[in-house]
C-alpha cells in the first residue's frame, strides 16, 4: 500500500517539478509581490500591505480596462461560439466543396494573431483599406475604425472573433460527429423540422463541448491581446486598453512590477471564478454520455 503511494508520487514527480517551477512557484511569488512595493534604485522593496490594491481601486485606467474587457468578452464569447457552431453545421453535411470550406474556415487558426492583425489592418486602413474602398464605392464618408474611440474596441474584437471561431469549429465538428445518424433519422421520421432537430437533439447532445468551448472562449477574451500591439497600442485614449494589455504596459513599459503583480492576481481570480461559475452553472444542464 505504502509502496504504491511511493511509486505514484515518483511517477508524478517529473510533471510536478515542471509545473511547480514554471507555474505554481511564480504564481505564489506573484501573490506575494502584490503586497510589496516596487524596488527603485536604492530603495529596496518593502511590505506595504494592501496599498497596491487600494491604488488599483482608485486607478481610472484599470477600471477603463475592466470595462473594455467586459465589452470585448461580451462581443467575443457568444459571437465566436455561434459562428463556430454555424460553420460546423454548414460543413458537416454532404455539400460540395466541403474540404475546401473546412480548410478556409480553419486557416485563421493556423496564422499567428500578429499576422492576422496585419491582414485586418489592411481591411481597416482609412483611405485605401478594403472597407474604406467599399464605402467609397457606395459614396459613404470615410471612416477610421481603429482611430475612433467609439469603434476601435469593436474593430479589435472582430479580429479576435475571426481568429478563434475557426479554432472552435474543430471541437464542434468532432462533437457533431459523435451524434449517431439514427438519432437524427428517428427525429426526421417523427416529422421534426431541421430547427427542431437542432434545438431538441443536436444542441443538447453537444452541450458538453459547448461548455468546454465557452470556458476556453472566456479565457481567450482575456488572453487574446497580441493584435492590440499591432493595431492600436491600447488607444485611442485607452479605448482598446484591455486588462492583460494594461498589465503588460505596467509591468514591462513602466516597470512597476508590484502593481503589475497586483493586477495579475485580480485577473487570475476573475478568470478562476468565471470558469468555476460556468462549470457549476452549466454542469447541471449538460448531459454527459
Amino acid at each position: 500500500m505504502r509502496r504504491e503511494w511511493l511509486y505514484a508520487w515518483l511517477m508524478l514527480l517529473p510533471a510536478l517539478v515542471v509545473l511547480a517551477t514554471f507555474m505554481h512557484v511564480p504564481a505564489i511569488k506573484t501573490v506575494i509581490a502584490s503586497f510589496y512595493s516596487t524596488p527603485h534604485g536604492l530603495r529596496p522593496s518593502r511590505f506595504i500591505g494592501l496599498a497596491n490594491y487600494q491604488r488599483m481601486i482608485a486607478d481610472p485606467v484599470f477600471w477603463q480596462a475592466m470595462r473594455n474587457n467586459l465589452i470585448y468578452a461580451v462581443i467575443f464569447v457568444p459571437l465566436s461560439m455561434a459562428m463556430a457552431l454555424v460553420m460546423a453545421l454548414l460543413v458537416q453535411g454532404r455539400i460540395v466543396g466541403r474540404a475546401f470550406l473546412r480548410m478556409a474556415f480553419f486557416t485563421p487558426t493556423v496564422l499567428p494573431l500578429i499576422a492576422v492583425a496585419n491582414i485586418w489592418i489592411f481591411f481597416y486602413t482609412p483611405g485605401f483599406g478594403l472597407i474604406a474602398q467599399i464605402r467609397d464605392l457606395f459614396g459613404l464618408p470615410a471612416l477610421n475604425l481603429l482611430g475612433t474611440g467609439t469603434t476601435a474596441l469593436y474593430a479589435v474584437a472582430a479580429v479576435a472573433v475571426w481568429k478563434e471561431a475557426g479554432f472552435f469549429i474543430i471541437f464542434y465538428l468532432a462533437a457533431l460527429q459523435t451524434i449517431p445518424p439514427s438519432l437524427v433519422e428517428a427525429a426526421q421520421l417523427e416529422g421534426a423540422s431541421r430547427w427542431q432537430i437542432f434545438r431538441r437533439v443536436t444542441l443538447p447532445l453537444i452541450m458538453p463541448t459547448t461548455l468546454f468551448i465557452s470556458v476556453n472562449a472566456v479565457i481567450d477574451a482575456v488572453r487574446l491581446i497580441d493584435h492590440i500591439f499591432q493595431m492600436t497600442n491600447g488607444g485611442p485614449n485607452n479605448a482598446t486598453n484591455l486588462l492583460f494589455y494594461y498589465i503588460y504596459r505596467v509591468g514591462f513599459q513602466f516597470w512597476d512590477t508590484s502593481y503589475a503583480a497586483t493586477l495579475t492576481v485580480v485577473m487570475i481570480v476573475i478568470l478562476s471564478l468565471l470558469a468555476l461559475g460556468q462549470i457549476v452553472l452549466v454542469d447541471r444542464r449538460v448531459h454527459y454520455k
Binding site: 438519432l183 426526421q188 421520421l189
Partner: peptide
Amino acid sequence: LPPSRRDIAMVFQSYALFPH
C-alpha cells in the same frame, strides 16, 4: 415523399433513443 409524410413508424437496430 420524405420519411415524416409516409405514415410509417420505425424501430432502429440501435433503438436510437435520445440519451438526454
